[in-house]
């Protein structure tokens, strides 16, 4: 039998199964806590720090990420205080300054209340959320990619920078990457170095959602084989329609995208059964 605990999130009394995280519970009850690196069914690493909340213990507030915080009886969580909002805005500002041309990150930033970015923009491809790394490791047990290096040199890479044989080109990494959404070249254009905040998440547009669909509901969508099949077309569409040029803002560390359509239309790779799209491996939970 499942054990339940009661806790308070932003004043709302909630009954939640023991063992779940505060973030999961909040999402389930419609309390929107922004998040980026969290993906259901994958482990939580607390890397993006967007989902920080105040955990009130003995009258003292402790700031911690809700994705890694397990629910406990009598917990008091505040997810939307002024202090949290300010910290979250600063974190989102750091993120968007790093990857200004990702619409998903732009969306995250705008929704966290970033009005202006006070740092010089960097044209970076990756915000190191680790969604790709974890899906590769935990869902497919492939471990073809991983975080390499440390500090500012940290990057997602293959071993020795070469795609290993055990990478089945399943594409899960691209599917979950917040950067593979049609890029926006606005912020990096000279003279236009600001975020207009006008365009909504391309992700929510692509899947035909309402314009005001919150990006987290999309980014946070569960990852399952079922999903993969449904979204296969979307993914294909995205890949083909993506401008493949030197100015492409796709993460450089991923294998060349041209490989995809080729392997789909009955290429050698497909014949060898390397493509796991059409014959999904049953995930291990």
């Amino acid at each position: 039998m499942r054990k339940y605990v009661t806790l308070k999130i932003d004043g709302a009394g909630i009954r939640a199964p023991k063992g779940s995280s505060v973030l999961d519970v909040a999402i389930e009850y419609g309390i929107c806590i922004p998040h980026l690196c969290h993906v259901p069914n994958l482990s939580d690493i607390g890397a993006c720090r967007l989902c920080i909340v105040e955990n009130i213990v003995n009258g003292r507030s402790k700031i911690t990420t809700s994705c890694t915080l397990g629910v406990e009886e009598g917990m008091v969580i505040l997810s939307n205080t002024e202090r949290i909002k300010k910290l979250r805005r600063n974190i989102a500002e750091l993120l968007v300054a790093q990857a200004p041309n990702s619409r998903a990150i732009q969306d995250v930033a705008v929704r966290c209340g970033v009005k202006e970015v006070r740092y010089p923009f960097r044209n970076n491809d990756c915000v190191l959320c680790g969604r790709c790394v974890r899906v590769c490791e935990e869902m497919w047990q492939a471990r073809a990619i991983g975080f390499v290096g440390r500090g500012k040199d940290r990057r997602v890479d293959f071993p020795f920078g070469v795609r290993p044989d055990f990478c089945k080109k399943c594409g899960s990494c691209i599917y979950l990457c917040p950067m593979t959404i049609t890029p926006c070249d606005g912020p990096m254009k000279p003279g236009k170095e600001y975020l207009c905040g006008k365009c909504e998440s391309q992700l929510s547009m692509a899947s035909g959602a309402m314009e005001d669909t919150c990006v987290w509901c999309e980014l946070g969508k569960g990852f399952s084989v079922h999903d993969m099949v449904i979204n296969e077309r979307l993914l294909l569409f995205m890949m083909i329609s993506m401008p493949i040029s030197p100015s492409s803002t796709l993460p450089k560390h991923f294998f060349p995208l041209t490989a995809y359509p080729v392997s789909y239309s009955g290429s050698a790779a497909h014949d060898q059964g390397e493509n796991c799209f059409l014959r999904p491996i049953v995930p291990v939970f």
Binding site: G46, L94, L95, A97, P120, G151, R154
Partner: peptide, 21 residues
């Protein structure tokens, strides 16, 4: 610290980097 940060979380990796900048 920028050199020694593991780079896992955003505030430490990017925050220290921007502070140094």
């Amino acid at each position: 610290l920028q050199d020694e940060s593991c780079g896992k979380c955003v505030p430490c990796r990017l925050g220290i980097d921007r502070m140094l900048e």
